[in-house]
């Protein structure tokens, strides 16, 4: 590979947690900084956004008119556009407003609602521009971020398999919290990537990485109900960081 790839890190509606994963690389941070040219990253440098990028890492969802326009500018100036995190890939927790009365939310949350200018919906980046690759998670896994950078530099496809979190859970040797304790767990329908963090602490999976491929949410929901969860509990379980991901949204609506 020739010159170091030029990278820009962009924030849309989000909490910054995913882009901070880049700074959280700790041991690997120097290696990452040595391998790529981080040209725009407001969390870390004062450099201005200008010119073309080999890779744009985009965090956050589109919730304002400005964002809906700006994402096209980034797409036009980037060879590869990679979305990072639940907000960018599915809309994030703020997508709870989709289908609700946004004016109600605004007046409930803000002292001066007149300063708020927002769209009625909250959407993932891929609804607006073509996306080359996406990293799931709330927040993303730093291991997957490093894998993405290392694989891109090596010229191979990154390994961020879309199978269930259960595979990571079993490989790690955790005892299944659903089978052994009856805890509600979204692991069987959730995209792997976190390393089965919550089951490792005897908690059910919250579905931070969104739906796995072919997520059979209705079969899982039926079992959660047999284990004692009522409709409201099941709806809320599917209505968190990936509430707007189609598989989770549709399952939540079935328990509405």
């Amino acid at each position: 590979m020739g010159a170091k790839p030029r990278i820009g890190v962009f924030k849309f509606s989000s909490c910054d947690g995913c882009q901070l994963s880049l700074l959280d690389c700790e041991d690997e941070l120097l290696a990452v900084a040595g391998a790529v040219d981080i040209a725009y990253f407001p969390e870390a440098t004062r450099a201005e956004d200008e010119g073309q990028y080999d890779i744009a890492l985009v965090e956050g969802s589109v919730t304002t008119l400005h964002e809906a326009k700006f994402i096209h500018s980034i797409r036009d100036r980037s060879t590869k556009l990679i979305t990072i995190g639940a907000c960018a890939t599915s809309g994030g927790i703020q997508a709870l407003k989709n289908g609700a009365d946004v004016a109600d939310f605004i007046s409930a949350v803000y002292t001066n609602p007149e300063f708020i200018s927002t769209l009625d919906s909250c959407t993932p980046i891929k609804d607006h521009v073509p996306v080359d690759y996406e990293l799931r998670g709330c927040p993303i896994s730093k291991h997957q971020l490093i894998e993405l950078i290392a694989a891109t530099l090596a010229g191979r496809w990154p390994q961020t398999p879309p199978h269930a979190t259960c595979m990571e859970c079993k490989r790690a040797g955790h005892v299944c919290v659903m089978v052994a304790a009856g805890s509600p767990c979204l692991g069987p329908v959730t995209h792997a990537g976190c390393g089965a963090l919550c089951p490792g602490y005897a908690r059910g999976c919250y579905g931070c990485f969104g739906p796995k491929e072919r997520a059979n949410t209705s079969a899982l929901a039926a079992r959660l109900a047999e284990n004692g969860a009522d409709g409201r509990a099941i709806r809320r379980l599917f209505s968190t960081f990936n509430t707007n991901a189609p598989a989770f949204r549709q399952e939540a609506q079935r328990h509405g």
Partner: peptide, 22 residues
């Protein structure tokens, strides 16, 4: 669920993948 738990806990299932780490 297609979650693969059966194959992970099976004492005879032996399939593996080989992954590259850079």
């Amino acid at each position: 669920l297609g979650c693969a738990n059966c194959t992970m806990v099976c004492p005879t299932c032996f399939c593996t993948d080989v992954e590259e780490i850079n």
